[in-house]
Amino acid sequence: MTFRVVIADDHTLVRQSVLKAVRHEDGVEVVGEAGDGPGALAAVEEHDPDLLVVDIAMPGMDGLAVAEQLRREKPKLRVVFLSMHDDDGSLQRAVALGAAGFVSKSASIEELQEAIRAVRDGGSYLSSNVASRVMDLAAGRTPATALGLTPREREILELLTAGNRPTEIGTTLFLSVKTVKNHLTSIYSKLGVETGAQAVAEAYRQGLVKRT
């Protein structure tokens, strides 16, 4: 039985290279392709593939958001992320979405083909440079970087948990209050909270900061 694949990547040269590599695999058929997030959703809806190989950073809708929507609509679809974005935040979301694979764009074509074969045969695949970090995430070792917090956001979160107000944080870090509030909005989003108090509680719960 043919293993049906859709490829989604906004860079045409990359997408064509992936298409060529996948088409050389026995029993694998590329049934569709797309250059952005909405296009990936449409291709999956039209062709009903077994596997979606999708870049994380795409216009319109990123690959992680695409996978999240498809997880609800097509729970049997398997997803392999192909991306330069192998940071811990992206890896954590990919793991949470039940990714069948995560292949770095720095990997060789042969490695991508190996990943496709593994998923076709019912397994999963992780590029060697991300495997150990995924194991850490799966084991629950989630430092602030795993949530996608930047060094500046971690600084601000630490000051917030110490009881500082935005104006005081700005004075300490030589930032405008508006800039601090923009960082706080990003922090709240990444922690999945809506207020400063909730952010402090979540930071303590996840061990992102230490109680004094």
Results as ranks from 00 to 15, higher is better:
Asp26His: 11
Ile7Gly: 02
Gln69Cys: 05
Met84Asn: 13
Asp88Val: 01
Gln69Pro: 00
Ala34His: 04
Leu91Gln: 02
Ala99Gly: 14
His85Asn: 08
Asp9Ile: 08
Leu64Asn: 10
Lys76Leu: 12
Glu73Trp: 00
Arg15Thr: 14
Glu68Thr: 15
Gly98Phe: 06
His11Met: 14
Ser17Trp: 11
Val53Pro: 09
Glu46Ala: 07
Val22Lys: 08
Pro49Trp: 05
Arg23Asp: 01
Ser17His: 11
Ala99Trp: 10
Leu41Trp: 03
Leu91Trp: 01
Val79Tyr: 13
His24Glu: 14
Arg23Met: 11
Pro59Val: 13
Asp86Gln: 13
Pro59Gly: 15
Ala43Asp: 03
Gly39Glu: 01
Leu82Tyr: 12
Asp62Leu: 07
Val31Ala: 04
Arg78His: 13
Val18Asn: 11
Glu68Trp: 06
Ala67Asn: 07
Asp86Phe: 14
Asp62Tyr: 03
Ala96Asp: 14
Val14Ile: 15
Met84Val: 13
Val14Tyr: 06
Ala57His: 10
Ala94His: 07
His24Cys: 06
Gly60Trp: 01
Val66Trp: 02
Arg71Asp: 09
Leu70Ala: 07
Glu29Thr: 14
Lys20Thr: 11
Gly39Thr: 01
Ala42Val: 01
Val31Asp: 01
Ala42Trp: 01
Leu13Phe: 10
Ile7Pro: 03
Gly98Tyr: 10
Ala65Ile: 12
Leu82Phe: 13
Met84Thr: 12
Gly39Phe: 01
Asp50Pro: 06
Val53Met: 14
Asp9Cys: 08
Leu70Arg: 08
Ala57Lys: 15
Gln16Val: 01
Ile56Tyr: 05
Ala8Gly: 05
Gly60Cys: 03
Lys76Gln: 15
Glu33Lys: 12
Leu13Asn: 12
Leu70Tyr: 04
Val66Gly: 03
Met84Glu: 09
Val28Glu: 10
Val30Ala: 01
Ser83Lys: 10
His85Trp: 09
Leu97Ile: 13
Ala8Pro: 08
Gln69Glu: 14
Lys74Pro: 00
Arg4Met: 00
Glu68Cys: 11
Pro38Ala: 09
Val44His: 03
Leu70Cys: 03
Arg72Cys: 01
Val5Leu: 12
Ile7Glu: 04
Asp48Trp: 00
Asp55Phe: 05
His24Val: 06
Leu91Lys: 02
Val22Met: 07
Met84Tyr: 08
Asp48Phe: 00
Ser17Ala: 15
Phe81Arg: 10
Ala65Leu: 14
Gly32Lys: 05
Val5Glu: 10
Ala94Thr: 13
Pro49Cys: 09
Met84Arg: 12
His47Ile: 00
Ala57Glu: 13
Glu68Leu: 12
Glu45Ser: 13
Val14Pro: 12
Gly37Ala: 13
Glu46Met: 03
Gly32Gln: 04
Ser17Glu: 12
Arg71Val: 03
Pro49Gly: 07
Val44Pro: 04
Val6Glu: 08
Val79Ser: 11
Val6Trp: 09
Gly37Glu: 08
Arg4Tyr: 00
Asp55Ser: 08
Gly27Leu: 08
Ala40Trp: 03
Val79Cys: 10
His24Lys: 15
Leu51Lys: 02
Asp48Met: 04
Ala67Leu: 06
Asp36Asn: 15
Ala57Tyr: 03
Glu25Phe: 00
Leu77Asn: 02
Ile7Gln: 02
Asp87Ser: 09
